[in-house]
């Protein structure tokens, strides 16, 4: 028996919004530790790694490890039927071929349940090597989303250049070129507004705007985003989900031909 309850459906809606542009379907691996999802996009350029810890749920029970392959388009249709404030419960029997989503209104007067067929997905699990990153940048998630959106007007790629002084995002194309520099903040009233840079070695890497923009769909989950970079290895874009877990996106860099 698997059962996981969150007091507000909005969290699960935001999690799904953060992955459904990159993935059509994905396997949710459930254990007593929580829910894990790891999947590459169809073109094998990026990877989504989601962790939702069991202690972050309002109720969590998982008697046997369970892998639930879900069509994210179908899951999205179902979650649209929930109000943001509804309690959401996911339930499945051991070895079941369906999962049930139950939504309950705050006043307990409306209860709906939606049963969704599970899929058998060919899982390809990738081992992600431990890496000491040369640069780790933390910045407001909204600021990162804004930069990705603005720069994608100028080219298909963004060059991220990180030094001790700051981080520079650049794009160029037919229109011309654009550069956005962010300096490390000296003092901020609120921690979530800070830009911090931990640098061992300066790095300059090129990434596809398309994917960076897809990652920023996680912005509603977190005030801050963390970018971890080293030369010639995938970028890690991490959003922490308060009290529940995190979503990490890995993106392979582009190289000069």
């Amino acid at each position: 028996m698997f059962e996981a309850r969150l007091n507000a459906a909005t969290t699960l809606k935001k999690v799904l919004d953060a992955i459904k542009d990159l993935l059509n379907e994905a396997t949710f691996d459930c254990s007593d530790a929580g829910i894990q999802l790891q999947a590459m996009d169809n073109s094998h350029v990026s990877l989504v790694s989601l962790t939702l810890r069991s202690d972050g749920f309002d109720k969590f029970r998982c008697d046997r490890n369970l892998s639930m392959g879900m069509n994210l388009g179908s899951m999205s249709k179902i979650l649209k039927c929930a109000n943001n404030e509804d309690t959401v419960t996911m339930k499945a029997q051991d070895n079941a071929d369906t999962v049930t989503f139950m939504f309950e209104s705050q006043n307990h007067e409306k209860v709906s349940d939606y049963e969704m067929k599970l899929m058998n997905l060919d899982q390809e699990h990738l081992g992600i090597p431990e890496t000491d990153y040369s640069c780790v940048v933390r910045m407001p998630a909204m600021e990162f989303a804004r930069i990705c959106r603005d720069l994608s007007q100028f080219g298909e790629s963004v060059i991220i250049c990180c030094t001790k002084e700051g981080v520079k995002f650049s794009a160029s194309g037919d229109v011309g070129s654009a550069n956005i520099k962010l300096a490390q903040t000296s003092s901020v009233d609120k921690e979530e507004e800070a830009v911090t840079i931990e640098m061992q070695e300066p790095v300059s890497l090129t990434f596809a705007c398309r994917y960076l923009n897809a990652f920023t769909k996680a912005t509603p989950l977190s005030n801050q985003v963390q970018l971890s970079m080293s030369a010639d290895v995938p970028l890690v874009v991490e959003y922490r989900i308060p009290d529940l877990g995190h979503i990490r996106y890995y993106l392979a860099p582009k190289i000069e031909e």
């Binding site: 990877l47 990738l126 081992g127 890995y250 000069e256």
Partner: peptide
């Protein structure tokens, strides 16, 4: 022009 690399060249299959 820059060429997009695949993630598979960085991560091992487990």
């Amino acid at each position: 022009m820059s060429k997009q690399q695949s993630l598979k060249s960085f991560f091992n299959r487990t």
